[in-house]
Design a protein around this nucleic acid. Sequence first.
DNA 1: CGCGACGTTGATTTGCCTCAACGATTGTGG
DNA 2: CCACAATCGTTGAGGCAAATCAACGTCGCG
Lengths: 195, 195
Amino acid sequence: MSAELLEHIHAHADIDQDEAEIILRAFKSKTIHKHEHILSPGEICRHETFIISGCFKMSYVDSQGAEHVASFGVENWYISDFYSFLSEKPSIYTITALEDSQILQIFKPDLDRLLNTIRGMERYYRILFQNAFVSLQSRTMEQISATAEERYSTFLKRYPGFQNRVPQYLIASYLGISPQFLSKIRRRAAHRKQI
Amino acid sequence: MSAELLEHIHAHADIDQDEAEIILRAFKSKTIHKHEHILSPGEICRHETFIISGCFKMSYVDSQGAEHVASFGVENWYISDFYSFLSEKPSIYTITALEDSQILQIFKPDLDRLLNTIRGMERYYRILFQNAFVSLQSRTMEQISATAEERYSTFLKRYPGFQNRVPQYLIASYLGISPQFLSKIRRRAAHRKQI
DNA sequence: CGCGACGTTGATTTGCCTCAACGATTGTGG
DNA sequence: CCACAATCGTTGAGGCAAATCAACGTCGCG
């Protein structure tokens, strides 16, 4: 059942059998139902969460009361407020299950122990954050330089099928546009294809 | 002269005297003059660049010919296209010196060697990318949720003094707005203070 | 069935862009 | 050392992308 995590680690770093068992014991398995929160604003994010199955959003509510989706998480991704986790300061985010989900969680002291004792873990997390940084950078640059329509189009290409999994207004929020405007973009695109 | 890099590493990870020397030998020192490029579009980013002194921008020119600043780099920061560096694929970015600068560069094979042989290096880079990810995430969220004026205001708070170091139109580009509009924002803010 | 969540559509407004023109400063070659 | 160009910031007019407001249709679910 936790083969997913081990596979994910193996894809990035070398760990042996013994280490694999130590790692697995450090993660706690949990079932989360749709609509449940695993992090709420004001709380310190106490664990990193690896998603075995299901889907989450991490979002925050601004001073105007508008919700903004910071990121989505699906199978074989992590979803956590790393700022809060690392600094042990209160988070501004909410992490909510968008589907019934199966997760593995590790607390900071346990993770720190793994990082100190298992060499492959350090590499694994370095590569995770490298990749996360690189992909976030391309999202940020798109946000700055591309129109809403272009952003939506690359979103569809980058995460095919995802549009059918989460409500459209959350995708709009992730893209930084209003749900109404995303609807209009879709109409234009559909219309254009017909011609 | 390379004390800066060692200090930076020491702040994040433990390395001993021998390791420090091996690391320093892997980095090559260079002087870069204002306006010079250390990366051009189409090139593969062959090295990570640590800035001893001076200032750089990393930017790209979109299909409309507009320049967008992805990031700035100053003393004790790295400036590189990590996507290109890690994947060894052509970069879309230009990295340009905004001042006469002193840098240290490491090539990928040398870095890989260090990561394999010196345990502290892996930790050092993990923490670098963690921090980079966290700070980029907050920039991205601001981009999505805040107005241009708010973004400028937090930029000033986050990087105090930086406004006097680089031309205003580059800050505008970094914030994702036109230089004219930034000028108008500044006027409004100045006017408001007077009242 | 009825309600709430979600998507759509149209009308209006607004934040920001583009275009254009003009000072101020810097720097550079004659 | 000056003249001229280039670079940078400012300002105003007009326009466009996207937000907001409001209303309505549809679907899934309690």
